[in-house]
Design a binder for these strands. Structure first.
Lengths: 228, 228
DNA sequence: AATCCGCTTTGACTCAGGTCAAGGTGGGAG
DNA sequence: CTCCCACCTTGACCTGAGTCAAAGCGGATT
């Protein structure tokens, strides 16, 4: 896949003036990272925009005691590190290669020129940031107003819908990672999965989980009921 | 203050083509709300962008059991309800007049045309959304990785810096509201304030709080120490 | 096949913080 | 002045979830 094709396949760059794609291709730098390699750290000076080409990238916060809260897990086509572009200059969180991955990098100044030159790019960017805000608002609600079983139920239902609502989902992250995503720790997650199994809400088989009582899971996710 | 002057004073609209201000003035609608009046609710269809003119507006999430998590308290010049403009169509949270207030409203379609017509507006909007994301990332970190005393300490330090670092701050919200802002409840907040007083970290006098041991508060805010 | 190592599960314990209920306290209305 | 109501504080209690420690359980390596 050529660089131009790669860029054309990125949703953020859809609907641009054709010459913008060329400009973007000219200023892009391709970088590769190994699994677990740090891409940038919270507080680092943001030098530009990143876009995942292949593999997965984890964006996360870390507490002094080592607990991690995952903010996003991004895959091919997803931009990241945008916040440092438009406000302040520093990254608000850490970014790490979740698997071996390739990333396109667009230097700040040149990318800013592209945005000024093509309103579509700005509008696409606004859409991306809005989606992030929406997701964050949801995460804040979950962390502040729901208990772990509720968050887990919400996440499972989300996965199930994304995969076509078959009622069967496959975790693409380890359970430890899932705990980080839900704002808890592996032990607690494990207990809750066990409890949900015992109640017949779900059936767990390694990374594969079958949702057996959607109704009940939904009421859990809404915080309307609790796990006994 | 004329409508044009009001609009010219909004940071979001700084640096636009002059005729944009006129367009904005033409499409703007002024609305007034009484204290506690609902401006919009989570899930409502978003019809446009709001900007606070006077008074304060509270943006918040609500749990089924009635606990509230405040996301923002906005004052004059702050835009809100933007997420529904650029992604999905529904508001992700509730908005309520925190005091009697006036709000400018820009209908979605007309405002979208303004954005397409003037890159500066799009860029200003990107800056606004980025700041919001940064703030949310911080709130997520606080909720997930810090305990209530740490969040409170961070908030007090934040206020103190914003007011010039004098070490004396005045709460402009009730303690109950502050609890909602910190993701806890009034009782817990009250206990922690009492404990901090007892330790000599702060001195409370109604809505006025004096920070007496900045060092210690900072280490609390970083999650490096705990409140005994 | 044997070893190892990372992930996961389970149990026992602790504790931050939420719930419920009972007073304080202070400012505005009559 | 005093009554009231909304806000705040305090106490007793409970529970969700984190910590620590000890096994399971595979999959990969040799």
């Amino acid at each position: 896949m050529t660089l131009a094709e790669t860029i054309a396949a990125i949703p953020l760059f859809e609907g641009l003036f054709p010459q913008q794609n060329e400009t973007l291709a000219r200023i892009a730098r391709k970088m590769t990272f190994c699994r677990e390699e740090r891409i940038f750290s919270e507080g680092d000076d943001g030098r530009g925009l990143h876009v995942v080409v292949s593999g997965r990238v984890k964006i996360f916060k870390l507490s002094p005691s080592g607990k991690e809260q995952i903010l996003h897990i991004f895959g091919p086509g997803d931009p990241f590190g945008e916040i440092a572009l438009f406000s302040g200059r520093t990254y608000p969180a850490h970014a790490e290669a979740h698997s071996d991955c390739q990333v396109l990098f667009f230097p700040r100044r040149e990318f800013a020129e592209c945005i000024a030159a093509d309103p579509s790019l700005a509008i696409n960017m606004l859409a991306v940031l809005s989606q992030r805000l929406r997701k964050f608002a949801q995460l804040i609600e979950d962390l502040s107003l729901k208990e772990v079983p509720g968050r887990l139920a919400a996440y499972l239902l989300f996965l199930s819908r994304r995969e076509g609502g078959s009622g069967k989902v496959t975790l693409e992250v380890t359970k430890g990672q899932l705990a980080g995503l839900l704002g808890t720790i592996p032990e607690t997650l494990s207990r809750i999965l066990a409890k949900m199994s015992r109640q017949g809400l779900i059936e767990v088989n390694g990374a594969c989980i079958e949702l057996r009582q959607i109704e009940e899971l939904e009421s859990l996710a809404q915080g309307e009921s609790r796990l006994v």
